[in-house]
């Protein structure tokens, strides 16, 4: 059964990278790589096996499980942001160095290492605020 997130709930992760941002959550328990999973020109997930295949991530607070795949995401996150075709924030259970490097280079908000499984605590469509300075995600 899908857990119902509650207004005002705050989930604590590790202190992250980037600035505080508010937006609509797009959530799946899948993993993430910009090169492997996305059609970056159209701004949608394009990997057939991905649970978000066909959905737009542009401007969303993207909440997924773990960073996967290669190193290209480190450049790609900034390239996507420059075209206004990137997510508003990246929230993961486990980032890897590539996501941290990419977020730092792009100025993208990134938080990981939460007390619980963040992909089960927030649902798609929730309006949330991510605050990397203190490592929190709050349901609005």
């Amino acid at each position: 059964m899908t857990r119902q997130s509650k207004q005002g709930e705050v989930f604590q992760g590790h202190v992250g990278i980037g600035l505080r941002v508010t937006g609509e959550a797009l959530v799946a328990s899948d993993n993430f790589s910009a090169r492997y999973d996305l059609d970056r020109l159209k701004g949608i997930f394009s990997r057939q096996q991905h649970k978000l295949c066909g959905q737009s991530y542009v401007g969303k607070i993207l909440i997924l499980n773990a960073a996967k795949g290669g190193v290209a995401s480190a450049w790609m996150l900034r390239e996507m942001a420059a075209r206004d075709m990137g997510p508003a924030a990246l929230i993961l259970n486990f980032a890897n160095p590539i996501m941290a490097q990419g977020a730092a280079f792009a100025g993208l908000a990134l938080i990981d290492r939460f007390d619980g499984d963040i992909t089960a605590l927030v649902k798609s469509g929730d309006r949330v605020t991510a605050d990397p300075a203190v490592g929190t995600v709050e349901i609005l």
């Binding site: 190193v71 290209a72 450049w75 790609m76 900034r78 390239e79 420059a82 075209r83």
Partner: peptide, 15 residues
């Protein structure tokens, strides 16, 4: 150093 132009795009080449 990995830096193919598809990953870089115009933005990162400019950088």
């Amino acid at each position: 150093l990995m830096a193919d132009p598809e990953s870089l795009g115009e933005e990162c080449v400019g950088f």
